[in-house]
Computed example of a mutant assay.
Amino acid sequence: MTIMDEPRSPERRKRDVLDRLERETDVWVASADSDGVPCLVALWFVWDGEALWMATRPGNPTGRNLCARRRTRLAFGDTRDVVLIDGEVDVHADDEVPAAAAEAFRAKTGWDPRADSATYSYYQVRPVAVQAWHEQHELPGRHLMRSGTWLV
């Protein structure tokens, strides 16, 4: 898509976001500690139709921040096809994660954190706001979800 193309409809943008959630493997995860020091890492994820599931060690900065703040902003890597997701975080120890989420994560990524020798937690991110746009001409109408409700 270029700036000369017609902007996508909100319905098309939502379809494109949902498609990306199904096919992408990595997402940028932004968090901050209690002093506001930011942390940005890429993590594998799986989408279950309502939430993204990720896994990381609970003692690293991202794990600590997500556990303490319970909020994150997620972004996909392409700057010409922007998707930003603000979400609320629930933390699940590897022995408490719902089996369906852990199995879906393993099936998509090929890795089962529950079987790793290190301790991992799963982070369930429920979107509360979603924005999507291609180039400047799609900035109007970029908000697709607010307060956890799809606008389209």
Rank of each mutant, 00 (worst) to 15 (best):
R70P: 02
Y120W: 15
H92G: 02
L66K: 12
C39F: 00
R69F: 07
A107G: 01
V128E: 13
C67D: 13
A55R: 04
M1R: 12
R114D: 09
L84Q: 10
E88F: 01
R8C: 07
C39D: 13
K108Q: 08
T149I: 03
D112C: 01
Q124V: 02
R71Y: 11
I85T: 06
D116S: 14
T62R: 04
A129T: 10
R69E: 11
E88G: 07
E96V: 02
A107N: 06
H134W: 13
D35T: 05
S34F: 07
N65S: 09
A75D: 02
R64A: 09
V128N: 06
D26Q: 12
V128H: 10
E22V: 15
L74A: 11
V91G: 01
D95S: 11
L52I: 06
G141K: 05
D33N: 14
P38T: 14
V91H: 03
T56E: 04
R64N: 06
A93M: 03
Y120M: 08
A102H: 07
R146W: 01
G148E: 06
P10E: 09
D78S: 12
S9D: 02
D95N: 14
R12H: 04
S34E: 15
L18E: 14
K108V: 02
D78C: 11
W28F: 12
T62N: 04
H143D: 10
V29F: 06
E50I: 04
W44P: 00
A132L: 02
P10T: 00
M54G: 00
T119Q: 11
T2D: 10
R73G: 03
W150N: 08
R69D: 08
V83C: 09
D16F: 01
P58N: 09
R8N: 10
D81F: 05
Q136M: 12
A118C: 06
D86E: 15
V41K: 11
R73C: 13
D35A: 12
D33L: 04
T79H: 13
W133C: 02
G63F: 10
W47Q: 03
V82Q: 07
F105E: 01
V46G: 01
T62Q: 07
D5R: 11
A99Q: 09
V152H: 15
V82D: 09
T25E: 14
T62L: 05
R69W: 12
K108Y: 07
N60A: 02
H143N: 05
L144I: 06
A118L: 12
P10C: 08
P38D: 04
W111Y: 15
T25P: 00
D81L: 05
H134P: 01
C67S: 15
W53D: 01
P127F: 08
R8M: 15
T72K: 04
G141L: 07
D16N: 11
A102F: 07
N65A: 08
F105W: 08
Y120R: 03
R12Y: 02
R57Q: 14
H134I: 06
D19P: 00
L144T: 03
T79V: 03
F76I: 11
F105Q: 05
